[in-house]
């Protein structure tokens, strides 16, 4: 990714690319002495689901706030749907739906009143009835928002974000605190948005969520994007691993391209050449008549990559 401009403040917009819903280059966000976002590049294509992963404090929500026009950037260029959110938030509001990480409700209002109010505040036409139905809230229409369960609140939150089916939907941890069934239904709703040609950007702690939904992901760590790309690209760029248990009397090991780690009887190999090293290992075992009943081999998982980023085992991509 090429950084086009550095240290350009709000008002400096990247050249609009019709294929990109979001183009971020060299984004910095500073709060006093603390730099929450340290020069990140992000491109989100129209119609894709893009997941922003990272630990607490990685800078995900801060990045989203800049995209939404709520955060002030101290450097870099940002274009969302071809607009600069810092200076053109009003135009962006009409085309973008936002789900907050938490709260945002007047708890004394009922679900029906909340949706009716939203109908009078948002420029995208839609009907409360459709959303009550879609998000399974019809029976809770006359219940105060404060009395909803956590899952019901998240569904109402999502209903407000997708009101009028906006071009771009930004979801901040849409399934945090949800039970598996609610999570599944939220995933369905997100996939429906994509099927309707909408662009979705979401943050999540859940790797399985990113794997289930996202076309592309970016993993943030300490204010930087550590790795970005499609899941296949990211996984392919990381070493695969295989492991097996060997009898204690077998002391030697074959020479492999990957890194071999032996812990008692357990042998674990991390390698960029899974097929080659596995073939060598199996041939070596066969020659010694060693059976390998619990042999396991797998490409790198997103969990491996996430762990590597968190433990600083992966070199952070610097802009």
């Amino acid at each position: 990714m090429t950084q086009t401009t550095d240290r350009a403040g709000p008002g400096a917009t990247a050249s609009p690319d019709t294929q990109l819903a979001i183009a971020v280059h060299g984004l910095h966000v500073r709060y006093g002495d603390f730099e929450a976002v340290r020069g990140i590049d992000l491109d989100v294509r129209r119609g894709e689901i893009f997941a922003l992963l990272g630990t607490n404090g990685a800078g995900k929500t801060t990045t989203l706030e800049v995209l939404e026009g709520f955060g002030t950037r101290s450097g870099g260029t940002v274009a969302v749907l071809g607009l600069d959110p810092a200076t053109e938030r009003a135009a962006l509001q009409v085309r973008m739906g936002v789900q907050l990480q938490e709260g945002g409700f007047v708890e004394e209002l009922t679900v029906g009143e909340t949706l009716a109010l939203w109908q009078r505040l948002v420029d995208r036409p839609d009907r409360p009835e459709r959303l009550l139905e879609r998000f399974d809230l019809r029976a809770r229409r006359d219940v105060s928002v404060g009395k909803l369960s956590g899952g019901e609140k998240r569904r109402l939150d999502l209903a407000l974000a997708v009101w009028g089916s906006p071009e771009l939907v930004i979801l901040d941890e849409p399934t945090t605190g949800l039970d598996p069934e609610s999570r599944r239904r939220t995933w369905d709703a997100i996939q429906e948005l994509q099927e309707a040609g909408r662009t979705v950007v979401l943050t999540t702690h859940y790797l399985e969520e990113a794997e289930a939904l996202a076309d592309r992901v970016a993993i943030m760590h300490e204010g930087r994007v550590a790795v970005t790309g499609t899941l296949a690209e990211i996984v392919a760029a990381q070493p695969a691993r295989f492991s097996a248990t060997l009898p204690a009397e077998i002391a030697d090991l074959p020479e492999l391209r990957g890194t071999t780690q032996r812990d008692g009887e357990r042998v674990q190999v991390r390698t960029d050449d899974l097929q080659g090293d596995l073939t060598t290992f199996l041939s070596w075992a066969a020659a010694r008549g060693v059976r390998l009943p619990d042999l396991r081999a797998a490409p790198a998982s997103l969990a491996d990559i996430y762990h590597a980023v968190r433990t600083d085992q992966m070199e952070v991509t610097r802009p």
Partner: peptide
């Protein structure tokens, strides 16, 4: 996701009034 549209025209003043009347209701 197909949005069933309604011909809702929301004016800036209408929006302010909508929230203001809700706030009165809450008080």
């Amino acid at each position: 996701m197909t949005a069933t549209t309604t011909a809702a025209t929301v004016t800036p003043v209408g929006r302010v009034l909508a929230l203001a009347t809700t706030e009165v209701l809450l008080i």
